[in-house]
């Protein structure tokens, strides 16, 4: 496994509210995920998993701590050191519990739009989108609107969109929650394949213990803190 850091959160703390209403969602968390590594982030509801994930996704600034992505310091406390939207465009991919496809675009266009906002010419974007959909086994559904796709197919399209710009980091928040166990496992295996074949760092928040064997490492969170981490074998 590569030792180049895909993402590195250092002493990350996120506090919501203040005074009597203050809630510490994430407290002093340090997490490093290498390129080509896929990590499961586990923990009970309210443990702070999603908060940590959205902080690393650069859409929920931490109260303190630092975030480095691809070796570049991008957040220092709640201060952004880069244009976050442009940085997300070039370096990050997202998959959520719901596929969140744009309903008025077909499967190919949902992938293509991620490429075009990153200044890929339409013809090249079209070709890349088709390649990704073929790679993920939904090439035949390219012209279908999201409504006409099954949950699993939608999630594959969402994964294709996340992969479109060759991100160095993919963040997935319970991506299999809406899928049956078979489909869920397929998606998890897909993430592992992407991480290992493309050298992408992948962090997956999940409650699904049935597919943990596909991860390189699991990390447990409770009450906003990391408890321990372990490899699938141990």
């Amino acid at each position: 496994m590569e030792s180049v850091p895909g993402v590195e959160a250092t002493r990350l703390t996120k506090i919501y509210g203040h005074g009597h209403t203050e809630v510490v969602a994430v407290q002093d968390v340090t997490l490093r995920v290498a390129r080509g590594e896929i990590v499961a982030l586990l923990g009970p509801s309210g443990a702070g998993k999603s908060t940590l994930l959205t902080a690393m996704a650069l859409i929920n600034p931490p109260t303190s701590g630092q975030i480095r992505i691809g070796g570049q310091l991008v957040m220092d406390g709640d201060r952004a050191l880069v244009d976050l939207r442009a940085f997300r465009r070039k370096n990050l991919g997202f998959v959520f519990q719901k596929a969140n496809l744009i309903p008025f675009l077909n499967a190919r266009e949902n992938v293509q739009v991620a490429l075009e906002v990153n200044d890929v010419p339409p013809r090249a974007a079209h070709q890349r989108a088709m390649e990704l959909l073929e790679y993920l086994g939904v090439g035949t559904r390219a012209d279908n609107l999201p409504d006409a796709l099954s949950g699993g197919e939608q999630q594959r399209v969402a994964v294709a969109r996340a992969l479109a710009n060759h991100p160095s980091l993919i963040l997935a928040d319970e991506p299999t929650a809406a899928l049956d166990s078979h489909r869920g496992r397929q998606v998890m295996e897909l993430f592992a394949r992407v991480a290992h074949e493309h050298g992408t760092a992948v962090i997956v928040v999940t409650h699904d213990a049935r597919a943990l064997d596909v991860f390189d490492r699991t990390v447990h969170m409770e009450d906003g803190r990391l408890k321990n981490g372990k490899s699938p074998g141990g």
Partner: peptide, 16 residues
């Protein structure tokens, strides 16, 4: 709104 938020999430510029 959700689609616009998604476009922002994947980095779409304001002009889009």
């Amino acid at each position: 709104i959700r689609d616009i938020a998604l476009l922002k999430l994947i980095g779409a510029r304001n002009r889009v």
